[in-house]
Design a protein around this nucleic acid. Sequence first.
DNA 1: CGACGTTTGTCAAGCAAGGTGAACTACAAT
DNA 2: ATTGTAGTTCACCTTGCTTGACAAACGTCG
Lengths: 142, 142
Amino acid sequence: MPKSINILLRNAHTTIDLAVRAELAQHGFADITPSQFALLRNLGEDGSRPSELAARAGVTRQAITKIVDELERLDLVRRAPDPDDGRGVIVRYTDRGLAGLEMARELALELEREYATRVGGDRWAQLRATLETLFSDDLPRT
Amino acid sequence: MPKSINILLRNAHTTIDLAVRAELAQHGFADITPSQFALLRNLGEDGSRPSELAARAGVTRQAITKIVDELERLDLVRRAPDPDDGRGVIVRYTDRGLAGLEMARELALELEREYATRVGGDRWAQLRATLETLFSDDLPRT
DNA sequence: CGACGTTTGTCAAGCAAGGTGAACTACAAT
DNA sequence: ATTGTAGTTCACCTTGCTTGACAAACGTCG
C-alpha cells in the first residue's frame, strides 16, 4: 500500500523539524515553539515592525505581540523604539538570537547533506528543485 | 535566498492538505479536522479498537475517545461492541465515512496527477520515491 | 493651528484544537 | 478473589490564535 504523498511530506517536515529543534535544545536554545521559530526566521537582519510581521504571517498584531514577548523573555529578540515613528517598535535579534538562527540553519544544512549522501546528491537536488517549482509560494499562517 | 527545505516541505504538505479538505467540504464533508482525518485514514476496512488506534497514533486512549465521539456525531464512524471481548469496542466506517475517505483519496490522486503534468511525470515519481526512501517511517503523534 | 480620523502596539479575555492525568465501570485473566 | 485491561468521563493544560477596548502617536484637511 503506497503511502499518501501527503503523509510523506508531513513525515519529512516533522522529522527535520524535530531534529533541528532537538539539536538546538542541546545547544542551549531550549524549547523554542514552531511559531516562535517562524517569527525568528522572518525577522530579517535589520529587524521588523510587529505590523509587518503580522501582515507577512497573516495573523493579528496581537498574536505577534505575544510571540515577541516570549522571545524577549528568552533573550532572542529585543524591542527598540522606531526612530522614524513614535508609535512604532522595531524587533531585532539579540546576539544570542542571531546565533541561534545561524545554528538552526547550519543544522538544517547538515541534515540535507546527510540525506543527499543517502539518496545521491543529484536525486536530492531534484527533489529540492521540484518542491521549489511547485510549492515555493508563501503561505499565510505561521 | 534559497528557501529552507523545511519550509518547502511544510508548504507542500499544507497546500495539499488544504486543497483536499476544501474539496471535501464542498462535497458535503464539512470541517473535518486534521486529527479526525488522520483517525479516519487509519481505521482500516475491518475497523479498529480504540486502544490500537491510540497505540498507533502515540496518544492516550482518552484522546481517541474524544475524536471517535466527534466522528460519530458527524456520522463518519460507528462504534460496535467487540463480539470477542465484552470490554472492547470496534470503530468502523459508516457508509458515509467510507465514501468520504475514498473521495479524499481520489482528490489527492487528482492533485498528484496535476503536479505530475506540471513538472513531468518522471520528476514527480522521483520526488515520491525519494521521499519514500527517506521518510516512510511512521511517526508517533497524529 | 486644531479637530478628526487612522495606525501602532498593547492589555485582557476567550476560544478551538489536541492533547494529558486521575478516577470509575465493566469485563477478562489468573 | 485478585489483579489487569478497555473504554469512558471529568477536569485541566498548552499552543496559537481571535475579538474588543484603549492610549499614544501620526496625517490631513479646513
